[in-house]
Amino acid sequence: MRIDIISVVPKLMESFFAHSILKRGQEAGHVEVVLHDLRDYSLSKQRQVDDYAFGGGAGMVMSIEPIARCIRHLQSERSYDEIIYMTPDGDTFNQQTANYLSLQGNLLFLCGHYKGVDQRVRDMFVTKEISIGDYVLSGGELAAAVCADAIIRLIPGVLNDETSALTDSFQDNLLAPPVYTRPAEFEGIAVPEVLLSGHEAKINEWRFEQSVERTRNKRPDLFKKTGL
């Protein structure tokens, strides 16, 4: 997979992709993440990429010209399965969306900034609009990084144990069960005996029961979707 990200502050994102699982996934050749500075596509001496909104009002709007120039340049080099605009009024990102996007070959993320992008950008180029929650950030960079992390870890080979992603919370509308590691007892609190039994069927049954109970208590909205 290749992920391209267009931003007015690409350096803000460099560190995020240079460590841990995301770094290893790139070094192993499972994914390529390329950051693009939108200002490189501005024709003004000041590298300006925004302007005042027609009709007045507070805040600046990202101009269509540098964005169109950047997207068309990238499209001349490859075809994108989705061109994604990170925006508070997009569809709320969830595990099912991450699963779908992880199966694609080329993704392009456009990070909003200021008061957002000229609507014509959304009409002409964007194929998917995503939000990570009902709140507003200074820009779409953190949101794009969150989505990229959730997507990349699902790509085969990125995680050391590929089954790990399949047992994450939300994969089946259930929250993950409690997990434990050594020591088996700490300050009088012991790990549930079933996890030390070595009996795989009983362990799986316990984990499922714990997932159901945890979801029922913490996320009744999700529990309704399980049909249990």
Rank of each mutant, 00 (worst) to 15 (best):
I5L: 15
V9C: 09
V9G: 03
P10A: 11
S15E: 14
F16P: 00
A18L: 10
R24L: 09
Q26K: 09
A28P: 04
G29C: 10
V34W: 11
R39D: 05
L43A: 06
S44F: 08
Q48V: 14
Q48F: 07
D50E: 09
G55M: 01
V61H: 03
M62N: 04
C70L: 06
Q75F: 07
R78D: 12
R78M: 15
S79C: 13
E82H: 11
T87M: 10
P88G: 06
N94D: 15
A98P: 01
N99K: 12
N99W: 12
N99G: 04
Y100R: 15
L101V: 13
S102T: 08
L103I: 08
Q104G: 09
G105I: 10
G105H: 14
L108M: 02
L110Q: 02
L110T: 05
C111I: 01
G112I: 10
H113L: 10
K115N: 14
V117I: 14
D118K: 05
Q119D: 12
R122I: 15
F125S: 06
F125Y: 15
F125G: 06
V126R: 10
I130H: 10
S131D: 02
I132F: 02
V136E: 05
V136G: 07
G139K: 01
G139N: 10
G140H: 04
G140E: 00
L142H: 02
A148M: 14
A150K: 06
N160W: 12
D161I: 08
S164G: 00
T167D: 15
L175I: 07
P177Q: 12
V191D: 00
I203T: 06
R207I: 12
R207G: 09
F208R: 15
S211F: 01
T226M: 11
G227P: 08
